[in-house]
């Protein structure tokens, strides 16, 4: 009997071990070890625990099993990387600075259109596996969820810029490959910069303003899904399963007694 088998026998109920452990150990010494045998010993122990455990123990046990499963899923999830670029849009005159958020917002909406995003997907050759099994529209919807555009925090002003005229914007992109995440984030920032410029050019009112892009690359950092969320989901599912199993077992026993 190896250490794994010995450990698994400890999972059997104490009352059961007091009665059967010696002869069970003698049997295990004769049985050919293997994964099938190991799984059978584990399954047998769990089944016996379920028979002897009360309602609270079943709920707690399956809750813990759910927690372990949730953490296992969290750990098995592929890593994701986020790269962020900060743009500094600068208006040429004081009056233009106030309109800068609105201009950036319109430009961002344009950037999120299918035409712009599908061009990035093709040029940067991203989402190849997804494109093989899903239509482009679904892949673009996934891409939109991976892009964040929001007002950035104040950074050092370009030489000669006036405080009222600078509008920092953070553009970030999340992807499974850090280099691709960086490249696409840069691409998105440059496109947003150009679209803001076009907004100024075509908006009439902003024709005299300039948009300056200062791409402050922060590199790609690894991000993981929320471990608490996965743990909580696992516990919830486990507890619900425990309540179901406990209720079903109680009902079966009541029917037997009746």
């Amino acid at each position: 009997m190896n250490w794994l088998t010995r450990g698994l026998v400890r999972l059997y109920p104490r009352v059961w071990r007091a009665r059967y452990e010696a002869e069970f150990a003698a049997l295990l010494e004769e049985v050919k070890p293997g994964w099938g045998t190991t799984w059978d010993i584990l399954r047998g122990g769990l089944a016996l625990q379920m028979r002897t455990a009360n309602f609270g123990m079943i709920v707690a046990g399956l809750g813990l099993a759910g927690l372990a499963a949730g953490l296992g899923v969290w750990r098995a999830m592929p890593a994701q990387f986020v790269s962020q670029v900060t743009l500094q849009l600068q208006a040429a005159e004081a009056g233009d600075g106030k309109a800068m958020p609105e201009r950036a917002n319109r430009a961002a909406q344009y950037l999120f259109r299918n035409k712009q995003l599908s061009a990035i997907v093709k040029e940067d050759n991203i989402y190849p596996a997804e494109l093989a099994r899903k239509p482009m529209e679904d892949v673009l919807a996934e891409m939109r969820d991976s892009i964040t555009i929001r007002p950035g925090r104040a950074v050092a002003l370009p030489a000669g810029a006036k405080p009222f005229s600078v509008w920092p914007i953070d553009v970030s992109f999340r992807y499974r490959d850090p280099e691709v995440a960086e490249r696409v984030a840069q691409d998105l920032a440059l496109r947003l910069d150009f679209l803001c410029y076009l907004e100024g050019e075509t908006g009439g009112r902003f024709s005299g303003s300039r948009v300056i892009a200062d791409t402050a690359l922060s590199g790609a950092r690894e991000v993981r899904a929320n471990i608490w969320l996965y743990g909580a989901m696992g516990v919830t599912v486990g507890v619900m399963a425990g309540v179901g199993v406990g209720w079903w077992r109680g009902r079966s026993r009541a029917q037997l007694v009746g």
């Binding site: 003698a26 049997l27 399954r43 016996l48």
Partner: peptide, 28 residues
Amino acid sequence: KHGYAMMEDIEQFAGVRLGPGTLYGAIT
């Protein structure tokens, strides 16, 4: 029969190899 002898016998007449956990669950 003891446990191992039962496993062998069952495999012979039914073609089913019971694992030790399954066998002792049934014995219990």
